[in-house]
């Protein structure tokens, strides 16, 4: 379930970036619309299966995972299309900005739809979040270490061609991937506890 949600969201973000590049105008609203429609369907399902439905912290993580994965894939594809000499205030960069914020807005609206206003967050949620933060920190450390080595030692290669906006967007990608790692780790913990408790 977690893996399929990740893959589908990456595919959605990549497809949107590809479509925006071909069309020459932002199509991020399609992604936002898909997220909102899915959230409406999920809300209906969770209302029917009230006893099995996750609490708000877990719901927030699902929306965060889907939204961040779509944004990360979208950003990665646009960066690949533009290349290392990325510059701000070009038509494609404006499309990237508009699409990214539209996807973030879509994810926020999706969360408002699926959240459970009566839900409680407790010490178990805090423990899971704490463990996930530790994992996400290690993931971030790994990505930043790789980036430091590439920037520090890649003098002659494509790393030397990286513009400041390209480096800035690489760092945004690292932050987004860290968020995905955090959400995925937490959701795996919730799933594992639920499965083991049911046995």
């Amino acid at each position: 379930m977690l893996f399929s949600a990740l893959l589908s969201s990456f595919a959605l973000g990549a497809a949107l970036a590809w479509a925006s590049t071909l069309a020459g105008y932002p199509v991020g609203w399609v992604g936002a619309l898909i997220m909102i429609s899915l959230a409406t369907l999920v809300r209906r399902r969770w209302r029917l299966l009230a006893d099995l439905a996750p609490e708000s912290p877990e719901r927030k993580l699902w929306v965060c995972l889907v939204g961040a994965s779509a944004v990360a894939a979208h950003l990665a594809v646009i960066m690949l299309v533009i290349g290392p000499s990325m510059q701000m205030h070009t038509p494609l960069m404006h499309i990237l900005g508009i699409d990214s914020w539209t996807l973030v807005a879509g994810a926020l609206l999706a969360y408002l739809l699926v959240r459970d206003a009566n839900s409680r967050s407790d010490e178990r949620d805090q423990l899971i979040a704490h463990q996930a933060r530790g994992f996400a920190w290690r993931v971030q450390f790994g990505f930043l270490s790789a980036l430091i080595l590439i920037l520090g030692f890649g003098e002659g290669g494509r790393a030397a061609e990286l513009s400041h906006p390209a480096i800035a967007h690489l760092l945004i990608l690292v932050l987004t991937l860290t968020t995905i790692a955090d959400c995925a780790h937490s959701l795996r913990a919730y799933r594992r506890i639920a499965t083991e408790s049911a046995e």
Partner: peptide
């Protein structure tokens, strides 16, 4: 869960021995 201010899933996890509550809880 409502009486002690925690989520129902936490009660399920404690009963199943999958989560050890804090002393306060």
């Amino acid at each position: 869960a409502k009486r002690v201010g925690i989520a129902r899933q936490t009660v399920i996890a404690i009963e199943a021995g999958q989560y050890a509550p804090s002393l306060e809880l």
